[in-house]
Amino acid sequence: MADDKSKRDFRDRDRVSASEDYEVQYFAEKAGITPQQVRDLIAKHGNSCETLERAKALKGKG
């Protein structure tokens, strides 16, 4: 089911939906990683932007 962009509110601003290509692409570009890496991080750590940012930073250190 497509995301209805006309219905916007605060509920999902802090989440990245792995099923929405444009959300994955945006986060990937912002974080400097590939869309597949974003999906892998979501699968392992959940879809919270804050958690994904921390996971990406930790992944880069190791």
Rank of each mutant, 00 (worst) to 15 (best):
T51V: 05
K59D: 06
T51K: 01
E23Q: 12
D40N: 12
A43D: 14
R15A: 08
R13M: 08
G62H: 05
C49L: 13
G62F: 05
H45W: 11
R11L: 09
A57D: 09
E29M: 14
K56A: 03
E20L: 11
Q36E: 07
H45V: 15
R54P: 01
S48D: 15
E29C: 04
A55F: 01
D3Y: 04
E53M: 00
S48M: 06
R54G: 02
Q25I: 10
S19N: 15
E23L: 07
S17I: 10
S48E: 11
P35G: 06
G62Q: 03
K7M: 05
E29Q: 13
A55M: 01
C49A: 14
A28Y: 05
G46Y: 11
K30E: 13
H45A: 07
A28S: 13
R15Q: 14
I42E: 08
R54Q: 04
K56I: 02
C49S: 08
S48R: 11
A43W: 09
A28R: 03
N47I: 11
L52P: 01
G62R: 02
S19C: 13
V24D: 15
K7E: 09
Q36P: 02
E23W: 10
A57K: 10
A57G: 01
S17Y: 11
N47P: 14
F27N: 04
F27K: 06
A28W: 06
D9P: 05
K44A: 11
E20N: 12
E23Y: 09
S17V: 14
R13A: 10
Q36N: 09
S48V: 12
K59R: 04
Q25P: 13
C49M: 06
R54A: 02
E50W: 03
E53V: 00
D9H: 05
K44C: 10
T51A: 01
G32F: 04
I33F: 07
R11V: 09
S19K: 07
Q36R: 03
Q36V: 05
V24W: 14
Y26H: 13
H45G: 15
L52G: 00
D21R: 13
K61W: 09
A55I: 00
K56C: 02
D12P: 01
E29H: 07
T34R: 02
V16G: 14
T51M: 01
D12K: 03
G46K: 14
S6N: 10
F27Q: 12
M1H: 01
M1R: 00
L41D: 13
L41M: 12
R13Y: 11
D9Y: 03
D12R: 09
C49I: 09
N47D: 12
K61Y: 12
T34G: 04
Q37C: 09
K30D: 14
A57S: 03
D9N: 13
I33Y: 02
L58S: 06
L58R: 04
R8T: 03
S19H: 15
V38F: 06
C49N: 06
F27D: 10
D40L: 12
T51P: 01
T51N: 00
I33E: 04
L52F: 00
Y26S: 09
K61A: 05
